[in-house]
Simulated assay, not measured.
Amino acid sequence: MNKVLFFAHLRDAVGAEYLTLDAGGKTVAELKDELVEKYDLPRMETVMTAINEEFASNDEVIRDGDEIAFIPPVSGG
């Protein structure tokens, strides 16, 4: 099982800070696609992904027990 964390507008769209999912063996892109389909998440193409607190690319494979975080771009001043 994997803990999947959501920040900013993604947290609002999912309705939770995190979900516990079975994402082991999937790529980051595959997980993003599943989440977009299930939760109608907006703008996932601009979202940064971290696996175990290290930035990850869309083709990185998730292992069982990994913690995945989806972090949208932030602006401010």
Rank of each mutant, 00 (worst) to 15 (best):
Met1Ala: 05
Asn2Tyr: 04
Asn2Leu: 04
Val4Trp: 02
Leu5Lys: 13
Phe6Ala: 07
Phe7Pro: 02
Phe7Asp: 01
Phe7Gly: 00
Ala8Asn: 14
Ala8Trp: 10
His9Tyr: 15
His9Cys: 00
Leu10Ser: 04
Leu10Val: 05
Arg11Cys: 09
Arg11Lys: 15
Asp12Ala: 09
Ala13Ile: 03
Val14Ser: 12
Val14Met: 11
Gly15Ile: 05
Gly15Cys: 06
Gly15Val: 04
Ala16Ile: 01
Glu17Trp: 01
Glu17Asp: 12
Tyr18Ile: 00
Tyr18His: 14
Tyr18Thr: 00
Tyr18Met: 07
Leu19Arg: 03
Leu19Tyr: 06
Thr20Phe: 00
Leu21Thr: 08
Leu21Trp: 04
Asp22Val: 00
Asp22Trp: 00
Asp22Gly: 09
Gly24Ala: 13
Gly24Glu: 10
Gly24Lys: 06
Gly25Leu: 12
Gly25Cys: 12
Gly25Asn: 14
Thr27Ser: 15
Thr27Trp: 10
Thr27Gln: 07
Ala29Thr: 03
Glu30Met: 05
Glu30Asn: 05
Leu31Thr: 09
Lys32Ser: 07
Lys32Asn: 10
Lys32Leu: 08
Asp33Thr: 14
Asp33Ala: 15
Glu34Gln: 13
Leu35Gly: 09
Leu35Phe: 06
Leu35Val: 12
Leu35Ile: 12
Leu35Ala: 12
Val36Pro: 04
Glu37Arg: 15
Glu37Leu: 10
Glu37Pro: 00
Lys38Gln: 14
Asp40Arg: 14
Asp40Ala: 14
Leu41Gly: 01
Pro42Ala: 10
Arg43Lys: 14
Arg43Asp: 14
Met48Asp: 07
Met48Tyr: 15
Thr49Pro: 06
Thr49Leu: 07
Ala50Glu: 04
Ala50Cys: 10
Ala50Gly: 03
Asn52Leu: 12
Asn52Ala: 07
Glu54Met: 09
Glu54Ser: 11
Glu54Phe: 03
Phe55Ser: 11
Ala56Val: 02
Ser57Asn: 13
Asn58Tyr: 01
Asn58Ser: 10
Asn58Pro: 02
Glu60Leu: 08
Val61Thr: 15
Val61Trp: 11
Ile62His: 10
Ile62Gly: 11
Ile62Arg: 00
Arg63Leu: 13
Asp64Tyr: 03
Asp64Ser: 15
Asp66Gln: 02
Ile68Trp: 01
Ile68Cys: 04
Ile71Cys: 04
Pro72Met: 09
Pro72Asp: 10
Pro72Thr: 06
Pro73Asp: 06
Val74Ile: 15
Ser75Val: 05
Gly76Asn: 11
Gly77His: 08
Gly77Asp: 11
Gly77Met: 09
